[in-house]
């Protein structure tokens, strides 16, 4: 009897509509296009260190999360694709899914290193600079 109920529940959950979430590629590629990023951004990622993170966080204790219109599916030119793939490889962390501008891309890695347990409900509405400033004060 329990097994039967389990099957039914499992099938009902499978049949339920799932929330569509844009892919990480879609998100990073949209930021690349919206802000016209190029390989200079990659070089910047190599240069930023802990001191730079501190400065960025301190300079923006209260910062508004920027808006970003995401397409359902993103297609990029070859150059944009290579840059997006390189950014994703370099900053490989789950907080990227909630980044909305290049600054948040940069700050996602140090924020994840300091506190990898921040839930999406916290990451989605607040700017990463603000969250990192809080983490640095702890």
């Amino acid at each position: 009897m329990d097994l039967k109920r389990n099957f039914k529940t499992g099938r009902a959950q499978e049949a339920r509509k799932k929330l569509f979430l844009p892919s990480r590629f879609n998100l990073v590629s949209s930021i690349v296009k919206a802000y016209g990023l190029d390989n200079a951004f990659l070089r910047l990622l190599d240069r930023v260190d802990e001191r730079a993170f501190h400065n960025l966080a301190k300079s923006a204790k209260i910062k508004e999360k920027p808006g970003l219109t995401l397409p359902l599916f993103s297609l990029a030119t070859e150059a944009e694709y290579l840059l997006t793939a390189a950014i994703m490889e370099k900053l490989d962390n789950p907080y990227l899914d909630n980044a909305r501008d290049p600054e948040e891309l940069v700050l996602s890695a140090p924020l994840y290193r300091r506190n990898p347990a921040l839930p999406p409900e916290v990451l989605a509405p607040r700017h990463f600079a603000e969250l990192l400033a809080e983490e640095l004060e702890k």
Partner: peptide, 8 residues
Amino acid sequence: PLLFDPEI
């Protein structure tokens, strides 16, 4: 020009 995403 061909456009890319990870699948392509």
